[in-house]
Amino acid sequence: MRGAADCPAPTRGRPRSEAAELAIVEGVVKLLEEGVPLAELSIERIARTAGVGKATIYRRWSGKEELFVDVVASIEGPDPELPGTSLRDDLIRLLEHMRRRGLNLRNSALLHNVFAQMKTLPKLWDAYHEVVVEPRRRAMHGVLRRAVAEGELPEGTDIELAGDLLSGPMLLRTVMRSDAPLADDLSARVVDTVLRGLLNAPGTEGVRREKPQVPPLG
């Protein structure tokens, strides 16, 4: 997850000026709100809109892709802090962030438009996955690995598959099925359903030291 302890933010050149960075990000958002396509946004135009020099932008971002990723992340909002109270609580917090992001995509014309454009720009789409999506995926895997180490999940749990089982339903509803409901309790229902499956998988009897508290069905 972006900003997580195991994924420190990269340093870029000189110490940053928060005021300059804010002006640059707001300049990009302003141009996007005016309908300028991502592909037509040049560093020169962004600098002019933000009231800074091009060198100021390049000291902070290596190019447009890196800048755009930070702009999209700022529109999406910060990643969640995990409570750390239990496996279930941490997983619900991660999925709830995905659910709210899906609501933002539906409610924000700007964010929806930016994502649609990003998918047509392979370099930008790859940069977004590398900087934003992959850290979030690693955060999910970190939670699951800790649960195995602490006996909340069976030894030998397929971390990759478990992460996909948890994220998949939320991604389906937020990305592929724009008409699907995103109920307030959806995150908890997904987590509880997947945990029941993981805890009752064949061959896992007697391998847990501490079973997570999962509400009963119904």
Rank of each mutant, 00 (worst) to 15 (best):
M1L: 04
G3R: 11
A4I: 02
A4Q: 13
A5M: 10
D6A: 05
A9E: 13
A9T: 05
P15Y: 13
R16C: 04
S17M: 08
E18I: 10
A19Y: 05
A19V: 12
E21F: 12
L22Y: 08
L22E: 12
I24T: 13
I24E: 06
E26A: 03
L31T: 07
L31N: 00
L31H: 04
E34Q: 12
E34S: 13
V36H: 00
L38N: 01
L38A: 03
A39M: 11
A39D: 12
A39G: 09
E40K: 02
L41T: 08
S42C: 14
S42R: 03
E44D: 14
R48G: 15
A50L: 01
G51L: 01
V52F: 00
K54N: 12
A55Q: 11
A55R: 01
A55D: 09
T56I: 07
T56L: 11
R60A: 12
W61H: 11
S62M: 15
K64E: 14
K64L: 15
E65F: 00
E65S: 02
L67W: 06
L67Q: 01
D70M: 02
V71K: 05
V71I: 10
V72G: 00
V72T: 08
A73S: 03
S74K: 12
P80T: 01
P80E: 11
E81F: 01
L82Q: 09
L82V: 05
S86V: 05
L87A: 03
R88P: 08
L91R: 06
I92P: 03
I92G: 09
R93P: 03
L94P: 01
L95V: 11
M98N: 09
L105A: 04
R106F: 07
R106N: 12
N107K: 15
N107G: 06
S108D: 15
A109D: 13
L110A: 06
F115H: 14
F115I: 08
A116T: 14
M118P: 11
K119A: 13
L121W: 07
P122E: 13
K123H: 14
W125E: 14
D126W: 06
V131N: 06
V133Q: 05
E134P: 01
P135R: 09
P135H: 08
R138H: 15
A139K: 13
G142M: 11
V143A: 15
L144R: 01
L144V: 07
R145M: 11
R145D: 13
R145I: 15
R146G: 14
A147W: 15
V148H: 09
E150K: 13
E150T: 04
E150F: 01
E152C: 11
E160D: 15
S167D: 14
S167G: 02
S167W: 07
G168M: 05
P169K: 09
M170K: 03
L172R: 01
L172P: 00
T174Q: 02
T174A: 04
V175C: 00
R177I: 12
R177Q: 04
L182W: 02
L182I: 02
A183D: 15
D185L: 00
V190A: 06
V191H: 04
L195D: 02
L195M: 05
L195V: 13
G197A: 10
L198H: 06
L198P: 07
N200P: 04
N200Q: 10
P202L: 07
G203L: 11
G203S: 06
G203K: 08
T204D: 09
E205G: 02
E205Y: 12
R208V: 08
E210N: 06
P212V: 07
P212C: 07
Q213W: 01
V214L: 03
G218L: 08
